[in-house]
Design a protein around this nucleic acid. Structure first.
Length: 216
DNA sequence: ATCATGATGTTCT
DNA sequence: GAACATCATGATG
């Protein structure tokens, strides 16, 4: 049943709980995320993720409690949490830990392992290396947006799946502070596979004032 | 390679 | 009104 680039069977629900989110996150490295649309299927091997630990984590979208946007984070694990940001980008998380815990893992980067031609058509100006190098680029390459909010990635027949893949060598997994966040700057919950070219460059968060027309 | 900046709209205070 | 889990681009080393 295994085809080229499909990365094996879908993950099970149990892969997403019974552990803290910072333990689940590095386990996702090397797993394969696939999205099937009527255009075809694109798959990528995850090379970089970040853990966000629910209402106790100042950097988490769940920090100030449940809202319409983050509602899926408070539900059961193994579902997609997709959000829109900076007026033009989508980013995707996987809900982890027990229901109500509101923990999630941000999928930050991956290496395309199937459907590269389709991914390139969605990111026309990108080099191969940059196809899914960064959370919003990853969503572009896989055509993930509002429609993919709240999907069960463990469903063997679903369009969006996380599959077993080729697990990362534990010796190659590195950790560091999360990218672009304001709170909990020192919590080293960014995980990546050392040496992978698709890992995104680290950036410190710098708040920037938006200039309104006619003011300064 | 790095750095600075503009773009864009939703969510939350 | 401010912040935003970002990216493309153009300048510069």
């Amino acid at each position: 049943m295994s085809g080229v680039g499909d990365g094996g069977g879908a993950l099970l629900k149990r892969d997403f709980f019974d552990r803290q989110v910072e333990e689940v996150a590095p386990d996702l490295l090397g797993r394969v995320l696939t999205h099937r649309t009527d255009e075809g299927e694109v798959a990528l091997r995850l090379t970089e993720v970040e853990a966000y630990a629910g209402p106790l984590d100042p950097a988490s979208h769940a920090y100030r409690g449940r809202t319409e946007r983050n509602a899926v984070m408070f539900g059961p694990p193994g579902y997609s949490y997709v959000y829109f940001t900076y007026g033009m980008h989508f980013c995707m998380n996987l809900v982890c830990a027990e229901e109500g815990n509101a923990s999630a893992v941000l999928l930050r980067a991956g290496e395309i392992v199937a459907g590269e031609e389709l991914a390139r058509s969605r990111r026309a100006r990108s080099t191969v290396r940059d196809l899914a190098r960064g959370p919003a680029r990853l969503c572009q390459a896989l055509a993930i947006g509002r429609e993919q909010y709240g999907l069960d990635v463990c469903s063997p027949d679903g369009p969006l799946q996380v599959r077993e893949g080729d697990p990362a060598d534990p010796a190659l997994i590195k950790t560091g502070p999360r990218t672009g966040v304001n709170g909990a700057k020192d919590t080293p919950w960014r995980f990546w596979i050392d040496g992978e070219r698709s890992v995104s460059p680290y950036r410190l968060h710098v708040p920037r004032r938006r200039v309104h027309p006619g003011s300064r």
